[in-house]
Computed example of a mutant assay.
Amino acid sequence: MSLLLVAGGLSACTPAGAPEGQGGAVATSSPAASASATGHWTEVFEGEFVSQAVTTRGRAVLTVTPSKVELKLANFSTGAGGNLHVHLNPGKLGPKAGEMGLSSSNTFVVAPLKARRGAQSYDLTSIWKELPEVQSVTIYQYSARARRAYGTANLVRRY
């Protein structure tokens, strides 16, 4: 079952592989999206980071209300490196061909990572309706040779 469903096209998104674009997005959520804009509902999706290329710890919390969509990284830390970016993914992290990988190769750039340590937040309100389903958050590093996943948090609906 998908966490989030598409409500619009991908025009404002920045697909992976193009870190210089600072678009990116998430999509509107399923049952609550049908509530009126004046309704008072909140959906929260959370997940713990799983280390991949380097040790990455912390929690990703995606909060959706009628007036705001925000991604927070709490108790966050990741390894050294430059050119780090936050991505949203329609796939989840799990076993793939004998190692851990995303179940979908599509990822969408949200923004450059603000800091390698500490709490931080990203306002996704203006881009909320622009992505397909979102099931995880990944921190990627871009280098001249490759894109490396530092860590991924699979998102689970809490309330």
Rank of each mutant, 00 (worst) to 15 (best):
R57A: 07
R57Y: 04
G58A: 05
R59S: 04
R59D: 07
A60I: 10
V61G: 00
T63G: 07
V64F: 13
K68Q: 15
V69C: 05
V69L: 01
V69M: 06
E70D: 06
L71Y: 10
L71I: 12
L73T: 06
A74L: 15
A74T: 14
N75V: 01
F76Q: 13
S77W: 02
S77T: 09
S77G: 14
S77I: 01
G79N: 09
G81F: 07
L84E: 04
L84W: 03
H85K: 03
H87V: 13
L88E: 03
N89R: 14
P90Q: 10
G91S: 13
K92M: 13
L93A: 08
L93H: 10
P95R: 06
K96Q: 09
K96H: 11
A97M: 07
A97Q: 14
L102W: 10
S103C: 07
S103N: 04
S104M: 08
S105Y: 00
N106I: 13
V110Q: 11
P112F: 03
L113W: 07
L113Q: 08
K114Y: 10
R116G: 09
R116W: 01
Q120A: 09
Q120I: 10
S121D: 01
Y122K: 04
Y122R: 05
D123M: 03
L124R: 11
L124D: 01
T125P: 09
K129A: 15
K129Q: 05
